[in-house]
């Protein structure tokens, strides 16, 4: 018979460890894994939230792959990723690299860069949405009009709407990336730089041969982190295009918005679940590929 008092100290430690671990495990199983599994099962069913679920095999996936909107949305999602991640990393590294050398009002400047990260994405998206409006209310277009330049169709163009939405999203994430980059820069031992300077190496070489290679762990983290962020972009797009979510003509619609629309406007839960599974696989693949490419050889 099991008696706690009969256990050895090592066994007791194991019991306690599992006792404490049980809570997060239970949490993860109930809150994460069970719904994830449920979504995967649901993707093979037809359900409108009200009636009974019925099995449909691969119908939802067949419908998805035959849907031109899905491919458009799939392309958009990778545009957000393909433009957003490199642009935001280059800008944030540039700022972090120079901010690191600034002594004057260093803390204040850093706070300024970090501020957008603290701002609610919804509020920010609405302010930018108004910036982008045509005259008479849009800030940018009012400025252009007063300078005698024709208006620019920021959000009202199938070409420019996506970059217009991406700009504030990149800006919002900068603060966080700058802080992480600066932490990475500070972690590089000064002695390497001193040695390089004694050898009379140019700044450019120092950047390429010392700073960047030693920043690799930081880079890997930021690339993966911001990639996942851009693949899951939703609030900025949704709030800047609430009148016609993902418009004009689906040119800004990311996968997450399509999932939301299918689930909570069309109430086609099975189809939405199939889209979610696809998003999950995309996120998994992208993260694994990035980790593989960027890990130390």
């Amino acid at each position: 018979m099991f008696r706690y008092s009969n256990l050895t100290v090592a066994q007791k430690q194991v019991v306690w460890a599992w006792g404490f671990l049980a809570l997060p495990i239970l949490f993860y199983v109930v809150i994460r894994f069970y719904p994830t599994f449920g979504a995967m099962v649901l993707s093979f069913q037809d359900w409108n939230l009200l009636g009974d679920k019925s099995w449909t095999g691969f119908d939802n996936y067949a419908k998805l792959f035959a849907d031109p909107v899905f491919w458009k949305v799939f392309g958009n999602t990778f545009l957000y990723l393909g433009i957003g991640t490199p642009v935001s990393l280059v800008i944030s590294f540039f700022i972090a690299y120079h901010l690191d050398k600034v002594r004057f009002m260093h803390g204040f400047l850093r706070a300024l860069y970090f501020l957008p990260f603290l701002t609610s994405a919804v509020a920010m998206a609405w302010v930018w949405r108004w910036f982008y409006q045509p005259v008479p209310i849009g800030l940018f277009n009012n400025f252009l009009a007063s300078a005698g330049i024709p208006q620019f169709p920021f959000l009202n163009s199938t070409t420019w709407a996506l970059p217009s939405i991406l700009a504030p999203a990149v800006w919002a994430g900068l603060g966080f990336q700058i802080i992480i980059f600066m932490a990475g820069l500070r972690a590089i031992p000064q002695s390497y730089y001193e040695a390089a300077r004694i050898d009379g190496v140019s700044n450019w070489t120092i950047l390429w041969e010392i700073t960047l290679p030693l920043l690799k762990p930081t880079l890997v983290f930021l690339v993966v982190f911001s990639s996942i962020g851009f693949l899951r972009i939703f609030d900025h797009v949704f709030n800047m295009t609430t009148n016609n979510p993902g418009g004009p003509l689906n040119s800004t619609k990311p996968l997450v918005l399509m999932i939301y629309d299918t689930a909570f406007n069309s109430f086609d839960m099975g189809y939405a679940a199939a889209q979610t599974v696809v998003l999950f696989l995309v996120l998994l693949t992208v993260s694994l590929v990035q980790l593989r490419i960027m890990r130390d050889r």
């Binding site: 009202n156 199938t158 016609n244 418009g247 004009p248 003509l249 689906n250 406007n265 069309s266």
Partner: peptide, 20 residues
């Protein structure tokens, strides 16, 4: 059958003419 999707069809109809 699905008001928001059916509305979307008409929104797109006008945007195809105006934007494209």
């Amino acid at each position: 059958a699905d008001e928001s999707a059916q509305r979307g069809a008409l929104v797109d109809m006008v945007q195809r003419i105006e934007l494209e």
